[in-house]
Design a protein around this nucleic acid. Structure first.
Length: 437
DNA sequence: CCTCCACAGGAAGCGCAGGAGT
DNA sequence: ACTCCTGCGCTTCCTGTGGAGG
């Protein structure tokens, strides 16, 4: 092997120009079809320039509808304005901290720490000096009360307008506590004299969630102190997705490597799955990769189709391997029973792939036994089934007439062979087929 | 019609782990 | 380092539901 493997790799790209553009974290300069949302957020945030605390904002919408990108765009713009002495004549100071609560920032403590640490790294963009009260000592091993006091001090001493973006806010465990704490900072901040004027800092929250229901979990006391703007993001339709994709193709693909009709096909596929732009981009990238691995310069229609099934497989695979063990066992039992057509079919006119919860539970118990695990009770088994349904791995329906009592009928959401194979690998099944009777 | 069956699913409680307060 | 607190995963117990079968 020569030492040119890296060079070879770089020149090997037949379709891509810039892969970064296709990453889900990339925020393009222009966000098509989100002008209104950007405007709404900007309007609220602009009060920073008048030295007034912005209202809290909550953004809802399914995944891949542009919530995070909109917030990042506005914050980026705000930062530009604030750091430019010509546009920010009175020298207001604001700073946005972004964090995704699912990635480790899921408790009050972690979030406070992140806010302060983020700050420590940053300096006052106007005077190029560190912010007051930041660099006194390190933050490790502090109690939450200390962190809180420090946060309050930093915000107050610099008359700072702090904007905290909590993405996937529903993942925070002690959310009530956190929100209460953060909003309370505002009541305790005293004005400070900067220049010839009295100024007062503030803390605002931008919450992002894909569950509209998460608000119900808040206790009414925090809810009332929180009230602010609420913006709902609608899914993109196929046409809008097409434009979004076309923009990315222009930046990320080599010229002429994918046709408009294939972009349209990807958009149509993505529109079927909730209008998720992230999914659309993933499809686009995968289709490009397939074309590239076949050493072709153009993406073909079949590439898009194989990309789609590959991604669906990937999604199911990831879903299954991250499932708790007992849910995997339940899935195994279901797929196994489907393949052998049920244990004791009590109804002849039902399709063979429909199972009763009773027989599945028995199958589940057997698999547990052969894996030497303690089976969960039936009560909990029912909850497992519901979770599997949420993930789209099974579909459930209640039995109607023809069946004794009220039972759940279970059907697999994908091919039984495939699911059984994936679960077996994931569980590391060592027992032989015969050992389960 | 009554009873039994085959479950669903609510309520309460239990043990554990990890985080917070001291 | 220590206890206390809280959330979570789970079990136990129980009531409800609606067709099957005598």
């Amino acid at each position: 092997m020569s030492s040119r493997i890296f060079e070879d790799e770089l020149t090997a790209s037949t379709v891509f120009k810039d892969m970064n553009v296709l990453s889900p974290h990339y925020v393009p300069k222009e966000l098509p079809y989100r002008k209104n949302e950007i405007k709404q957020v900007t309007k609220v945030m602009s009060s920073v320039l008048l030295d007034v605390k912005p209202l809290n904002i909550f953004l809802y919408g399914k995944t891949g509808t542009g919530k995070t990108s909109v917030v990042k765009t506005v914050l980026r713009e705000l930062e530009l304005v604030v750091s430019d002495p010509l546009r920010n004549k009175s020298g207001m100071l604001s700073y946005g901290v972004y964090m995704n609560c699912r990635l480790g920032y899921n408790s009050k403590y972690q979030i406070l720490l992140k806010i302060l640490e983020d700050h420590q790294l940053n300096t006052d963009k106007i005077s190029e000096k560190p912010l007051k009260g930041v660099r006194n000592n390190t933050l490790g091993g502090r109690s939450p009360t200390e962190l809180y006091a420090k946060l309050q001090k930093v915000v107050q001493a610099n008359a700072l307008h702090l904007i905290i973006v909590l993405d996937e806010i529903d993942m925070v465990r002690d959310l009530n506590d956190l929100l209460y704490t953060l909003t309370r900072v505002n009541d305790q901040i005293e004005p400070v004299k900067i220049g010839e004027r009295n100024r007062r800092g503030s803390v605002s929250i931008i919450g992002i969630s894909n569950k509209h229901s998460f608000k119900n979990a808040l206790d009414p006391r925090t809810k009332s102190t929180l009230l602010g703007e609420e913006i709902v993001f609608k899914p993109y339709n196929a046409n809008q997705l097409k434009t979004i994709l076309a923009n990315r193709v222009r930046e990320g693909f080599k010229k002429g490597s994918i046709s408009a009709s294939n972009i349209g096909l990807i958009a149509a596929f993505a529109a079927q799955t909730n209008g998720d732009a992230r999914y659309a981009l993933r499809l686009l990238q995968k289709a490009g990769e397939i074309a590239q691995s076949n050493k072709r310069k153009r993406v073909k229609k079949e590439d898009v189709q194989t990309a789609k099934s590959k991604i669906e497989e990937d999604i199911i695979h990831e879903l299954i391997t991250t499932l708790p063990e007992h849910q995997q066992i339940v899935l195994y039992a279901i797929s196994d029973l489907v393949l052998r057509g049920g244990q004791y079919r009590r109804l002849s006119d039902l399709p063979g792939d429909i199972l009763f919860s009773g027989e599945v539970y028995e199958g589940y118990e057997k698999v547990c036994k052969s894996l030497s695990r303690n089976p969960r009770t039936m009560r909990w088994f029912g909850e497992y089934l519901k979770e599997l349904e949420m993930l789209g791995l099974v579909t459930l329906s209640l039995s109607g007439s023809g069946v004794r009592g009220t039972t759940t009928l279970i059907r697999l959401g994908a091919s039984a062979e495939e699911i059984k194979k994936m679960v077996s690998i994931s569980l590391g099944l060592l027992f032989s087929e015969k050992s389960i009777k």
